[in-house]
Design a binder for these strands. Sequence first.
DNA 1: TTCGCGCTCCGCCAAG
DNA 2: TGCTTGGCGGAGCGCG
Length: 328
Amino acid sequence: MIPHRVVIAAFPPAQTLDVTGPLDALASANAASTAAGHPPFYEVVLATPHGVPLATTSGISIIAGCDLLQSDLAADTLMLAGGPGARAMPANPELVRAVTRIALRTPRVVSICTGAFALAATGELNRRRATTHWAHFDEFAHHFPQVTIDRDALFINDGKYHSSAGVTAGIDYTLSMIQADLGRKIALEVARDLVVFLRRPGGQSQFSAHLAAEVGADDPDRFADLNQWLAENLASDLSVTMMADRVAMSPRNFARRFKQAMNVTPNTHLQMLRVDAARRLLSESSLSIPRIAKRCGFASASALRTEFKAQVHITPEEFRSRFQSASA
DNA sequence: TTCGCGCTCCGCCAAG
DNA sequence: TGCTTGGCGGAGCGCG
């Protein structure tokens, strides 16, 4: 089997490759693929101008030193890393030409964090939707007015072009990419691995509560559609009765079946989804706490604080001060 | 701080 | 007879 080649483009003055989370997810997917008796699925190639090597702490082995400027660089997925170099990249015509050349012939092109600046510089995002790190929304909009910014999304898929918000959101995107490439089972195994290796102090797990619940669930597929619907409608006035109606069951039977399948009660799961959404908005947006509470379906900012503290063990304000700048 | 209300969860039991 | 489903009621909890 020919491995799926992921070319990661990084731009000077970067000296380290700051996409460790997505790389670890790819490494974990390779391990799961190997354990299933198949060769590693992903082959990761680091491409920098003139092949300048970068340090990385990821567990995946990288074919380092490929020249981003070479004309015949081939990829199945092109991943554009963020950082100051990516934001400065549009001012370098030689780099813009090189990335455009690769992007045009690559089936899937992904930007991580401020890698969106490098992707937008190619012009391929014009009249498309995209996202980037919240702290650079205005700067991005100023430089690329023809790109529609989605300020709430964790990641955006528009045709073959994909963009993720912060580096943490890049992990969520990578999980969805692995699910598309290798299936739901492997993606859940990768998520389970990430629980072990990527959980940060202060309770900021780097993957969604949705996935966390599925990892611990006996039968996650049974309520997959409902969970998807819940995640998309958190701001609605949701109740166990409404969830039961949604899956055409009586409330009593629904509660029983949900607990059996997911290992948590419906309301506990709903609260996990709400805190997860709040956590993302706290680290990926500049919205006020009351607005985040409303958007996530909490009755008030006070209700958000109570539930947030119960699950994450710190207040939303502490969480924001600790993690908001960490992903910039 | 207290109290009442509404919601959730769960054990129990009956019906299909 | 065993399993699934759904109703009932009590305990617990959050919120205003």
